[in-house]
Design a protein around this nucleic acid. Structure first.
Lengths: 259, 259
DNA sequence: ACCGGGCGTTCCACTCAGCGGTACGCTGTG
DNA sequence: CACAGCGTACCGCTGAGTGGAACGCCCGGT
Protein backbone atom coordinates (compact mmCIF):
# COMPACT_ATOMS: atom_id res chain seq x y z
CA UNK A 1 0.00 0.00 0.00
CA UNK A 2 1.76 3.07 -1.25
CA UNK A 3 0.67 6.48 -0.09
CA UNK A 4 1.58 9.51 -2.18
CA UNK A 5 4.66 11.34 -1.04
CA UNK A 6 3.81 14.37 1.02
CA UNK A 7 2.70 16.94 -1.47
CA UNK A 8 3.99 19.55 0.94
CA UNK A 9 2.92 18.72 4.45
CA UNK A 10 -0.51 17.55 3.59
CA UNK A 11 -1.94 20.60 1.94
CA UNK A 12 -4.61 18.91 -0.09
CA UNK A 13 -6.67 22.08 0.43
CA UNK A 14 -5.30 23.74 -2.64
CA UNK A 15 -5.49 22.97 -6.31
CA UNK A 16 -1.75 22.89 -6.68
CA UNK A 17 -1.34 20.70 -3.64
CA UNK A 18 -3.81 18.22 -5.07
CA UNK A 19 -2.16 18.24 -8.48
CA UNK A 20 1.28 17.66 -6.99
CA UNK A 21 -0.09 14.91 -4.77
CA UNK A 22 -1.43 13.22 -7.84
CA UNK A 23 1.86 13.50 -9.73
CA UNK A 24 3.80 12.24 -6.73
CA UNK A 25 1.40 9.33 -6.30
CA UNK A 26 3.32 7.65 -9.10
CA UNK A 27 6.20 5.61 -7.76
CA UNK A 28 9.56 5.05 -9.42
CA UNK A 29 8.51 1.74 -10.90
CA UNK A 30 4.89 2.50 -11.72
CA UNK A 31 3.69 2.31 -15.26
CA UNK A 32 -0.07 2.87 -15.48
CA UNK A 33 -2.23 3.67 -12.49
CA UNK A 34 -6.01 3.50 -12.77
CA UNK A 35 -8.14 6.28 -11.33
CA UNK A 36 -9.18 4.18 -8.36
CA UNK A 37 -5.55 3.59 -7.36
CA UNK A 38 -4.83 7.31 -7.53
CA UNK A 39 -7.84 7.83 -5.26
CA UNK A 40 -6.45 5.27 -2.79
CA UNK A 41 -2.97 6.72 -2.81
CA UNK A 42 -3.93 10.36 -2.44
CA UNK A 43 -6.95 9.95 -0.21
CA UNK A 44 -8.72 12.57 -2.30
CA UNK A 45 -12.35 12.19 -3.31
CA UNK A 46 -12.94 10.33 -6.54
CA UNK A 47 -14.57 13.25 -8.34
CA UNK A 48 -11.68 15.48 -7.44
CA UNK A 49 -9.07 13.02 -8.62
CA UNK A 50 -10.95 12.55 -11.85
CA UNK A 51 -11.08 16.26 -12.47
CA UNK A 52 -7.53 17.12 -11.48
CA UNK A 53 -6.17 14.17 -13.45
CA UNK A 54 -8.10 15.38 -16.47
CA UNK A 55 -6.60 18.84 -16.04
CA UNK A 56 -3.12 17.38 -15.77
CA UNK A 57 -3.74 15.41 -18.94
CA UNK A 58 -4.78 18.63 -20.63
CA UNK A 59 -1.49 20.19 -19.60
CA UNK A 60 0.55 17.17 -20.79
CA UNK A 61 1.76 16.29 -17.33
CA UNK A 62 -0.28 13.08 -17.24
CA UNK A 63 -1.29 10.81 -20.05
CA UNK A 64 -4.50 8.81 -20.10
CA UNK A 65 -4.85 5.39 -21.64
CA UNK A 66 -7.61 2.81 -21.60
CA UNK A 67 -5.97 1.11 -18.68
CA UNK A 68 -5.07 4.10 -16.58
CA UNK A 69 -2.89 7.16 -16.25
CA UNK A 70 0.85 7.58 -16.47
CA UNK A 71 3.25 10.49 -16.08
CA UNK A 72 3.52 12.18 -19.45
CA UNK A 73 6.38 13.23 -21.68
CA UNK A 74 5.59 16.88 -21.00
CA UNK A 75 6.75 16.27 -17.45
CA UNK A 76 9.95 14.66 -18.68
CA UNK A 77 10.59 17.68 -20.84
CA UNK A 78 9.97 20.08 -17.98
CA UNK A 79 12.08 18.01 -15.63
CA UNK A 80 15.01 18.13 -18.00
CA UNK A 81 14.95 21.90 -17.83
CA UNK A 82 15.81 21.99 -14.16
CA UNK A 83 18.79 24.28 -14.32
CA UNK A 84 21.09 22.68 -11.78
CA UNK A 85 20.65 19.09 -12.88
CA UNK A 86 20.68 19.99 -16.54
CA UNK A 87 23.93 21.87 -16.30
CA UNK A 88 25.63 19.31 -14.14
CA UNK A 89 24.61 16.54 -16.48
CA UNK A 90 25.80 18.39 -19.55
CA UNK A 91 29.17 19.31 -18.14
CA UNK A 92 29.73 15.96 -16.46
CA UNK A 93 28.74 13.75 -19.38
CA UNK A 94 32.15 13.54 -21.07
CA UNK A 95 33.87 12.72 -17.78
CA UNK A 96 31.31 10.09 -16.95
CA UNK A 97 31.79 8.60 -20.39
CA UNK A 98 35.53 8.44 -19.97
CA UNK A 99 35.11 6.76 -16.63
CA UNK A 100 32.67 4.26 -18.06
CA UNK A 101 35.02 3.40 -20.90
CA UNK A 102 37.86 2.92 -18.51
CA UNK A 103 35.97 0.68 -16.12
CA UNK A 104 33.00 -0.78 -17.97
CA UNK A 105 31.12 -0.69 -14.71
CA UNK A 106 28.13 1.37 -13.72
CA UNK A 107 28.94 5.04 -13.28
CA UNK A 108 26.80 7.36 -11.18
CA UNK A 109 26.64 11.08 -10.65
CA UNK A 110 24.78 12.22 -7.56
CA UNK A 111 24.02 15.27 -5.49
CA UNK A 112 22.89 15.77 -1.94
CA UNK A 113 19.39 16.96 -1.19
CA UNK A 114 18.69 17.24 2.49
CA UNK A 115 19.86 13.98 3.97
CA UNK A 116 19.59 11.91 0.82
CA UNK A 117 21.45 11.27 -2.40
CA UNK A 118 19.67 12.15 -5.62
CA UNK A 119 21.07 10.47 -8.71
CA UNK A 120 21.52 12.86 -11.62
CA UNK A 121 22.96 10.30 -14.00
CA UNK A 122 23.46 6.59 -14.24
CA UNK A 123 25.53 5.12 -17.05
CA UNK A 124 25.79 1.43 -17.60
CA UNK A 125 26.40 -1.15 -20.24
CA UNK A 126 25.29 -4.66 -21.03
CA UNK A 127 27.06 -6.24 -18.13
CA UNK A 128 26.06 -3.74 -15.51
CA UNK A 129 25.33 -5.06 -12.08
CA UNK A 130 21.75 -4.94 -10.94
CA UNK A 131 21.64 -1.77 -8.93
CA UNK A 132 18.48 -0.25 -7.48
CA UNK A 133 19.63 3.27 -8.25
CA UNK A 134 17.77 5.27 -10.81
CA UNK A 135 18.28 8.66 -12.43
CA UNK A 136 16.08 11.04 -10.49
CA UNK A 137 15.87 8.55 -7.65
CA UNK A 138 16.99 8.81 -4.04
CA UNK A 139 19.01 6.71 -1.65
CA UNK A 140 20.08 7.15 1.94
CA UNK A 141 23.50 8.62 2.38
CA UNK A 142 24.82 6.45 5.19
CA UNK A 143 24.98 3.20 3.23
CA UNK A 144 26.06 4.37 -0.22
CA UNK A 145 29.58 5.36 -1.20
CA UNK A 146 28.33 8.36 -3.10
CA UNK A 147 26.25 9.38 -0.09
CA UNK A 148 29.14 8.98 2.32
CA UNK A 149 31.45 11.10 0.26
CA UNK A 150 28.77 13.80 -0.04
CA UNK A 151 28.16 13.60 3.68
CA UNK A 152 31.83 13.87 4.49
CA UNK A 153 32.10 17.01 2.41
CA UNK A 154 29.13 18.95 3.57
CA UNK A 155 28.12 21.13 6.46
CA UNK A 156 28.62 19.59 9.88
CA UNK A 157 24.95 20.20 10.63
CA UNK A 158 23.92 17.83 7.87
CA UNK A 159 26.39 15.25 9.06
CA UNK A 160 25.12 15.59 12.60
CA UNK A 161 21.54 15.26 11.42
CA UNK A 162 22.28 12.00 9.65
CA UNK A 163 24.41 10.63 12.49
CA UNK A 164 21.79 11.46 15.09
CA UNK A 165 18.92 10.09 13.09
CA UNK A 166 18.10 6.48 12.34
CA UNK A 167 20.57 4.59 10.17
CA UNK A 168 18.24 1.99 8.74
CA UNK A 169 19.74 -1.40 8.04
CA UNK A 170 19.29 -2.40 4.43
CA UNK A 171 21.61 -5.43 4.36
CA UNK A 172 23.54 -7.42 6.95
CA UNK A 173 26.53 -5.23 6.06
CA UNK A 174 24.87 -1.87 6.60
CA UNK A 175 26.75 0.24 9.10
CA UNK A 176 24.16 1.25 11.67
CA UNK A 177 26.51 2.38 14.43
CA UNK A 178 26.97 6.15 14.29
CA UNK A 179 30.52 5.87 15.63
CA UNK A 180 31.56 3.51 12.89
CA UNK A 181 29.95 5.65 10.21
CA UNK A 182 31.65 8.73 11.58
CA UNK A 183 34.99 6.99 11.27
CA UNK A 184 34.24 6.16 7.66
CA UNK A 185 33.32 9.78 7.03
CA UNK A 186 36.56 10.94 8.61
CA UNK A 187 38.49 8.63 6.36
CA UNK A 188 36.54 9.80 3.36
CA UNK A 189 37.46 13.36 4.24
CA UNK A 190 41.16 12.49 4.49
CA UNK A 191 41.44 10.35 1.43
CA UNK A 192 38.83 11.99 -0.81
CA UNK A 193 37.25 8.59 -1.36
CA UNK A 194 34.51 6.48 0.12
CA UNK A 195 33.73 2.82 -0.32
CA UNK A 196 30.60 0.79 -0.11
CA UNK A 197 30.74 -2.93 0.59
CA UNK A 198 27.28 -4.40 0.24
CA UNK A 199 25.94 -1.83 2.67
CA UNK A 200 23.01 -0.69 0.56
CA UNK A 201 22.51 -3.64 -1.78
CA UNK A 202 23.64 -7.23 -1.38
CA UNK A 203 26.30 -8.11 -3.93
CA UNK A 204 27.31 -4.54 -4.77
CA UNK A 205 30.59 -2.76 -4.21
CA UNK A 206 31.27 0.87 -4.93
CA UNK A 207 33.87 3.61 -4.76
CA UNK A 208 33.06 7.31 -4.90
CA UNK A 209 34.83 10.67 -4.98
CA UNK A 210 33.53 14.20 -4.38
CA UNK A 211 33.20 16.89 -6.99
CA UNK A 212 34.41 19.76 -4.86
CA UNK A 213 33.19 23.29 -4.97
CA UNK A 214 35.55 26.21 -5.44
CA UNK A 215 36.08 26.38 -1.69
CA UNK A 216 37.82 23.05 -2.00
CA UNK A 217 35.93 21.67 0.96
CA UNK A 218 32.27 21.15 0.15
CA UNK A 219 31.00 18.80 -2.50
CA UNK A 220 28.74 19.99 -5.30
CA UNK A 221 28.21 16.44 -6.44
CA UNK A 222 29.94 13.09 -6.41
CA UNK A 223 30.92 10.44 -8.92
CA UNK A 224 30.99 6.73 -8.27
CA UNK A 225 31.69 3.41 -9.93
CA UNK A 226 29.66 0.40 -8.89
CA UNK A 227 30.16 -3.26 -9.65
CA UNK A 228 29.34 -6.73 -8.45
CA UNK A 229 31.09 -8.66 -5.72
CA UNK A 230 33.40 -11.25 -7.21
CA UNK A 231 34.48 -9.29 -10.27
CA UNK A 232 34.70 -5.74 -9.13
CA UNK A 233 37.55 -4.34 -7.08
CA UNK A 234 36.82 -0.77 -5.95
CA UNK A 235 40.48 -0.11 -5.14
CA UNK A 236 41.43 -0.80 -8.72
CA UNK A 237 39.28 2.12 -9.87
CA UNK A 238 39.78 4.61 -7.11
CA UNK A 239 42.29 6.71 -9.01
CA UNK A 240 40.13 6.87 -12.08
CA UNK A 241 37.11 7.94 -10.02
CA UNK A 242 39.11 10.55 -8.19
CA UNK A 243 40.56 11.85 -11.45
CA UNK A 244 37.14 12.15 -13.02
CA UNK A 245 35.72 13.96 -10.03
CA UNK A 246 38.68 16.31 -9.88
CA UNK A 247 38.52 17.08 -13.58
CA UNK A 248 34.80 17.76 -13.38
CA UNK A 249 35.28 20.01 -10.38
CA UNK A 250 37.85 22.04 -12.21
CA UNK A 251 35.69 22.34 -15.30
CA UNK A 252 32.77 23.52 -13.20
CA UNK A 253 35.00 25.98 -11.38
CA UNK A 254 35.92 27.54 -14.71
CA UNK A 255 32.32 28.14 -15.69
CA UNK A 256 31.05 31.65 -15.29
CA UNK A 257 28.22 31.69 -12.78
CA UNK A 258 29.06 28.20 -11.60
CA UNK A 259 26.38 25.60 -11.40
CA UNK B 1 11.21 38.50 -25.94
CA UNK B 2 10.16 35.06 -24.93
CA UNK B 3 6.55 34.32 -24.13
CA UNK B 4 5.70 31.26 -22.08
CA UNK B 5 4.75 28.23 -24.08
CA UNK B 6 1.03 27.76 -24.30
CA UNK B 7 0.06 26.38 -20.97
CA UNK B 8 -2.82 24.69 -22.74
CA UNK B 9 -4.45 27.04 -25.14
CA UNK B 10 -4.20 30.05 -22.96
CA UNK B 11 -6.12 28.91 -19.91
CA UNK B 12 -4.64 31.27 -17.42
CA UNK B 13 -8.04 31.21 -15.72
CA UNK B 14 -7.17 28.27 -13.54
CA UNK B 15 -4.64 27.71 -10.82
CA UNK B 16 -3.10 24.76 -12.62
CA UNK B 17 -2.96 26.66 -15.88
CA UNK B 18 -1.13 29.49 -14.18
CA UNK B 19 1.29 27.16 -12.44
CA UNK B 20 2.10 25.33 -15.65
CA UNK B 21 2.50 28.63 -17.49
CA UNK B 22 5.02 29.66 -14.89
CA UNK B 23 6.97 26.41 -15.14
CA UNK B 24 6.96 26.57 -18.92
CA UNK B 25 8.11 30.19 -18.83
CA UNK B 26 11.59 28.82 -18.23
CA UNK B 27 13.37 28.19 -21.50
CA UNK B 28 15.88 25.44 -22.22
CA UNK B 29 18.86 27.66 -21.51
CA UNK B 30 17.48 29.74 -18.66
CA UNK B 31 19.15 29.64 -15.30
CA UNK B 32 17.56 32.15 -12.90
CA UNK B 33 14.57 34.24 -13.78
CA UNK B 34 13.56 37.14 -11.53
CA UNK B 35 9.93 37.61 -10.63
CA UNK B 36 9.54 40.55 -13.00
CA UNK B 37 10.68 38.43 -15.94
CA UNK B 38 8.17 35.71 -15.07
CA UNK B 39 5.52 38.43 -15.02
CA UNK B 40 6.58 39.60 -18.47
CA UNK B 41 6.68 36.12 -19.93
CA UNK B 42 3.38 34.90 -18.56
CA UNK B 43 1.45 38.14 -18.77
CA UNK B 44 -0.04 37.33 -15.36
CA UNK B 45 -0.45 40.00 -12.70
CA UNK B 46 2.55 40.49 -10.43
CA UNK B 47 0.75 39.51 -7.25
CA UNK B 48 -0.46 36.31 -8.87
CA UNK B 49 2.98 35.37 -10.13
CA UNK B 50 4.45 36.06 -6.73
CA UNK B 51 1.90 33.86 -5.05
CA UNK B 52 1.95 30.97 -7.51
CA UNK B 53 5.74 31.00 -7.62
CA UNK B 54 5.79 30.83 -3.86
CA UNK B 55 3.44 27.86 -3.93
CA UNK B 56 5.60 26.13 -6.51
CA UNK B 57 8.63 26.73 -4.31
CA UNK B 58 6.75 25.17 -1.44
CA UNK B 59 6.13 22.09 -3.57
CA UNK B 60 9.79 21.90 -4.68
CA UNK B 61 8.96 22.52 -8.31
CA UNK B 62 10.66 25.93 -8.24
CA UNK B 63 13.60 27.11 -6.23
CA UNK B 64 14.04 30.67 -5.05
CA UNK B 65 17.39 32.39 -4.74
CA UNK B 66 18.40 35.97 -4.04
CA UNK B 67 18.65 36.61 -7.75
CA UNK B 68 15.50 34.88 -8.93
CA UNK B 69 13.74 31.58 -9.42
CA UNK B 70 14.82 28.42 -11.18
CA UNK B 71 13.22 25.07 -11.88
CA UNK B 72 13.87 22.87 -8.89
CA UNK B 73 15.27 19.40 -8.39
CA UNK B 74 11.87 18.14 -7.37
CA UNK B 75 10.78 18.70 -10.94
CA UNK B 76 13.79 16.80 -12.24
CA UNK B 77 12.89 13.91 -9.98
CA UNK B 78 9.28 13.90 -11.12
CA UNK B 79 10.29 14.21 -14.75
CA UNK B 80 12.52 11.18 -14.47
CA UNK B 81 9.53 9.11 -13.39
CA UNK B 82 7.76 9.56 -16.70
CA UNK B 83 7.14 5.95 -17.50
CA UNK B 84 7.75 5.89 -21.23
CA UNK B 85 10.92 7.93 -21.24
CA UNK B 86 12.27 6.26 -18.13
CA UNK B 87 11.83 2.79 -19.53
CA UNK B 88 13.19 3.65 -22.93
CA UNK B 89 16.25 5.26 -21.39
CA UNK B 90 16.93 2.36 -19.09
CA UNK B 91 16.63 -0.29 -21.77
CA UNK B 92 18.46 1.73 -24.41
CA UNK B 93 21.39 2.84 -22.28
CA UNK B 94 23.69 -0.14 -22.89
CA UNK B 95 23.10 0.05 -26.65
CA UNK B 96 23.75 3.76 -26.70
CA UNK B 97 26.93 3.20 -24.72
CA UNK B 98 28.14 0.58 -27.15
CA UNK B 99 27.45 2.87 -30.05
CA UNK B 100 29.28 5.72 -28.36
CA UNK B 101 32.28 3.56 -27.69
CA UNK B 102 32.34 2.41 -31.26
CA UNK B 103 32.08 5.86 -32.79
CA UNK B 104 33.17 8.38 -30.17
CA UNK B 105 30.67 10.75 -31.65
CA UNK B 106 27.50 12.14 -30.15
CA UNK B 107 24.75 9.57 -29.81
CA UNK B 108 21.08 10.53 -29.56
CA UNK B 109 17.91 8.65 -28.73
CA UNK B 110 14.71 10.39 -29.78
CA UNK B 111 10.99 9.85 -30.04
CA UNK B 112 8.27 11.52 -32.02
CA UNK B 113 5.73 13.72 -30.33
CA UNK B 114 3.25 15.26 -32.70
CA UNK B 115 5.35 16.69 -35.50
CA UNK B 116 8.54 17.10 -33.54
CA UNK B 117 11.44 15.05 -32.25
CA UNK B 118 11.91 14.90 -28.50
CA UNK B 119 15.37 13.84 -27.40
CA UNK B 120 15.30 11.23 -24.65
CA UNK B 121 19.06 10.86 -24.37
CA UNK B 122 22.20 12.52 -25.58
CA UNK B 123 25.56 10.95 -24.98
CA UNK B 124 28.77 12.69 -25.84
CA UNK B 125 32.42 12.88 -24.93
CA UNK B 126 35.10 15.50 -24.80
CA UNK B 127 35.33 15.94 -28.49
CA UNK B 128 31.64 16.10 -29.20
CA UNK B 129 30.52 18.45 -31.90
CA UNK B 130 28.55 21.45 -30.76
CA UNK B 131 24.99 20.34 -31.28
CA UNK B 132 21.96 22.31 -30.20
CA UNK B 133 20.08 19.20 -29.16
CA UNK B 134 19.34 18.66 -25.53
CA UNK B 135 17.81 15.83 -23.52
CA UNK B 136 14.17 16.75 -23.09
CA UNK B 137 14.44 19.20 -25.95
CA UNK B 138 12.65 19.32 -29.30
CA UNK B 139 13.63 19.75 -32.89
CA UNK B 140 11.71 19.81 -36.14
CA UNK B 141 11.56 16.50 -37.94
CA UNK B 142 12.14 17.63 -41.49
CA UNK B 143 15.74 18.75 -41.03
CA UNK B 144 17.10 16.19 -38.58
CA UNK B 145 18.12 12.65 -39.46
CA UNK B 146 16.45 11.30 -36.39
CA UNK B 147 13.30 13.22 -37.27
CA UNK B 148 13.30 12.02 -40.85
CA UNK B 149 13.62 8.40 -39.87
CA UNK B 150 10.79 8.79 -37.35
CA UNK B 151 8.68 10.54 -39.95
CA UNK B 152 9.33 7.84 -42.53
CA UNK B 153 8.17 5.19 -40.09
CA UNK B 154 5.03 6.69 -38.77
CA UNK B 155 1.43 7.10 -39.78
CA UNK B 156 0.88 8.66 -43.21
CA UNK B 157 -1.26 11.33 -41.59
CA UNK B 158 1.70 12.63 -39.61
CA UNK B 159 3.88 12.60 -42.67
CA UNK B 160 1.24 14.46 -44.62
CA UNK B 161 0.88 17.00 -41.83
CA UNK B 162 4.59 17.77 -41.87
CA UNK B 163 4.81 17.82 -45.66
CA UNK B 164 1.85 20.14 -46.02
CA UNK B 165 2.98 22.48 -43.29
CA UNK B 166 5.85 24.94 -43.35
CA UNK B 167 9.34 23.46 -43.59
CA UNK B 168 11.27 26.28 -41.99
CA UNK B 169 14.78 26.85 -43.30
CA UNK B 170 17.35 26.63 -40.58
CA UNK B 171 20.50 26.60 -42.71
CA UNK B 172 21.28 27.11 -46.40
CA UNK B 173 21.15 23.30 -46.70
CA UNK B 174 17.72 22.79 -45.16
CA UNK B 175 15.40 20.93 -47.48
CA UNK B 176 12.31 23.12 -47.74
CA UNK B 177 10.75 21.56 -50.85
CA UNK B 178 8.14 18.98 -49.84
CA UNK B 179 8.86 16.88 -52.89
CA UNK B 180 12.52 16.58 -52.06
CA UNK B 181 11.78 15.76 -48.43
CA UNK B 182 9.28 13.14 -49.52
CA UNK B 183 11.95 11.48 -51.63
CA UNK B 184 14.30 11.41 -48.66
CA UNK B 185 11.56 9.85 -46.55
CA UNK B 186 10.95 7.23 -49.21
CA UNK B 187 14.63 6.37 -49.24
CA UNK B 188 14.68 6.26 -45.45
CA UNK B 189 11.83 3.80 -45.57
CA UNK B 190 13.62 1.57 -48.06
CA UNK B 191 17.04 1.64 -46.50
CA UNK B 192 16.11 1.98 -42.83
CA UNK B 193 18.44 4.96 -42.55
CA UNK B 194 18.28 8.69 -42.85
CA UNK B 195 21.02 11.23 -43.19
CA UNK B 196 21.36 14.85 -42.28
CA UNK B 197 23.83 17.09 -44.01
CA UNK B 198 23.95 20.45 -42.29
CA UNK B 199 20.21 20.74 -42.67
CA UNK B 200 19.46 21.65 -39.08
CA UNK B 201 22.80 22.99 -37.89
CA UNK B 202 25.72 24.30 -39.92
CA UNK B 203 28.71 21.99 -39.66
CA UNK B 204 26.83 18.93 -38.44
CA UNK B 205 26.29 15.60 -40.15
CA UNK B 206 24.18 12.79 -38.86
CA UNK B 207 22.90 9.28 -39.60
CA UNK B 208 19.87 7.76 -37.89
CA UNK B 209 18.00 4.46 -37.77
CA UNK B 210 14.53 3.62 -36.44
CA UNK B 211 13.80 1.49 -33.40
CA UNK B 212 10.87 -0.39 -34.86
CA UNK B 213 7.79 -1.52 -33.02
CA UNK B 214 6.66 -5.14 -33.05
CA UNK B 215 4.65 -4.45 -36.19
CA UNK B 216 7.97 -3.99 -37.94
CA UNK B 217 6.76 -0.83 -39.61
CA UNK B 218 6.31 1.99 -37.15
CA UNK B 219 9.10 3.48 -35.12
CA UNK B 220 8.93 3.64 -31.34
CA UNK B 221 12.07 5.71 -31.24
CA UNK B 222 15.23 6.33 -33.24
CA UNK B 223 18.95 6.34 -32.63
CA UNK B 224 21.45 8.60 -34.33
CA UNK B 225 25.12 9.45 -34.42
CA UNK B 226 26.15 13.05 -35.04
CA UNK B 227 29.51 14.51 -35.86
CA UNK B 228 31.20 17.50 -37.39
CA UNK B 229 31.77 18.12 -41.05
CA UNK B 230 35.37 17.40 -41.96
CA UNK B 231 35.94 14.53 -39.57
CA UNK B 232 32.68 12.68 -39.47
CA UNK B 233 31.52 10.34 -42.22
CA UNK B 234 27.92 9.20 -41.60
CA UNK B 235 28.24 6.31 -44.04
CA UNK B 236 31.06 4.87 -41.99
CA UNK B 237 28.73 4.49 -39.01
CA UNK B 238 25.50 3.53 -40.68
CA UNK B 239 25.83 -0.18 -39.94
CA UNK B 240 26.62 0.44 -36.30
CA UNK B 241 23.64 2.74 -35.93
CA UNK B 242 21.33 0.30 -37.65
CA UNK B 243 22.63 -2.57 -35.53
CA UNK B 244 22.09 -0.63 -32.31
CA UNK B 245 18.55 0.33 -33.33
CA UNK B 246 17.73 -3.21 -34.34
CA UNK B 247 19.10 -4.68 -31.13
CA UNK B 248 17.19 -2.19 -29.04
CA UNK B 249 14.01 -2.91 -30.95
CA UNK B 250 14.37 -6.59 -30.32
CA UNK B 251 15.06 -6.07 -26.63
CA UNK B 252 11.99 -3.89 -26.29
CA UNK B 253 9.92 -6.43 -28.19
CA UNK B 254 10.86 -9.03 -25.62
CA UNK B 255 9.69 -6.96 -22.70
CA UNK B 256 6.35 -7.92 -21.22
CA UNK B 257 3.96 -5.02 -21.62
CA UNK B 258 6.22 -3.25 -24.07
CA UNK B 259 7.22 0.32 -23.55
C1' DA C 1 -28.39 -16.20 -14.44
C1' DC C 2 -28.17 -12.95 -10.77
C1' DC C 3 -26.05 -10.01 -7.55
C1' DG C 4 -22.81 -7.09 -5.56
C1' DG C 5 -18.65 -4.66 -5.57
C1' DG C 6 -15.82 -1.74 -7.91
C1' DC C 7 -14.92 1.16 -11.75
C1' DG C 8 -15.10 5.65 -14.23
C1' DT C 9 -18.02 9.59 -15.50
C1' DT C 10 -21.16 13.34 -14.78
C1' DC C 11 -23.71 16.87 -12.32
C1' DC C 12 -24.54 21.07 -9.56
C1' DA C 13 -25.55 23.93 -5.20
C1' DC C 14 -22.40 25.74 -2.23
C1' DT C 15 -18.22 27.98 -0.41
C1' DC C 16 -13.83 29.50 0.51
C1' DA C 17 -9.35 29.43 -2.10
C1' DG C 18 -7.67 32.37 -5.08
C1' DC C 19 -7.43 36.86 -6.92
C1' DG C 20 -5.14 41.23 -8.31
C1' DG C 21 -5.20 46.17 -7.59
C1' DT C 22 -2.99 48.87 -4.46
C1' DA C 23 0.41 50.41 -1.32
C1' DC C 24 4.96 50.39 0.38
C1' DG C 25 9.90 50.12 1.07
C1' DC C 26 14.17 49.25 -1.26
C1' DT C 27 17.68 49.61 -4.92
C1' DG C 28 20.06 51.36 -8.73
C1' DT C 29 20.78 54.75 -12.23
C1' DG C 30 21.10 59.18 -14.41
C1' DC D 1 17.50 64.04 -5.80
C1' DA D 2 13.93 61.83 -8.66
C1' DC D 3 12.27 58.11 -10.89
C1' DA D 4 11.70 53.56 -12.57
C1' DG D 5 11.63 49.09 -11.46
C1' DC D 6 11.81 45.55 -8.15
C1' DG D 7 9.72 42.34 -4.72
C1' DT D 8 6.47 41.84 -0.86
C1' DA D 9 2.22 42.16 1.62
C1' DC D 10 -2.67 43.01 2.19
C1' DC D 11 -7.70 42.15 1.92
C1' DG D 12 -12.69 42.51 0.23
C1' DC D 13 -14.75 40.10 -3.26
C1' DT D 14 -16.20 36.26 -6.23
C1' DG D 15 -16.27 32.54 -9.25
C1' DA D 16 -13.25 28.41 -9.73
C1' DG D 17 -13.23 24.45 -7.51
C1' DT D 18 -15.58 21.10 -4.70
C1' DG D 19 -17.17 16.39 -3.58
C1' DG D 20 -21.32 13.84 -2.44
C1' DA D 21 -24.47 11.56 -5.02
C1' DA D 22 -26.22 9.24 -8.92
C1' DC D 23 -25.66 6.35 -12.77
C1' DG D 24 -24.23 2.92 -16.12
C1' DC D 25 -20.91 -0.57 -17.02
C1' DC D 26 -17.97 -4.52 -16.13
C1' DC D 27 -16.40 -8.50 -13.84
C1' DG D 28 -16.13 -12.18 -10.66
C1' DG D 29 -18.36 -15.18 -7.41
C1' DT D 30 -22.20 -18.05 -6.09
Amino acid sequence: MRVAEHAGDGDLDTVLGKAVALLRAFGPEDRLLPLAELVRRTGLPKGTVHRVAGDLVHHRLLEKTDHGYRLAGGLFELGMRAATERTLLEVAMPFLQDLYERTHETVHLGVRDGTEVVYVAKIGGHRQARSPSRTGGRMPMHCTAIGKVLLAHTKPAVRAAVLSGPLPRRTPHTVVAPGLLEQQLGRALETGLAFEREESTPGLLCVAAPVLDTDGASALAAISVTGPVGRFRPEAHQNAVRAAATALASTLARRPGGL
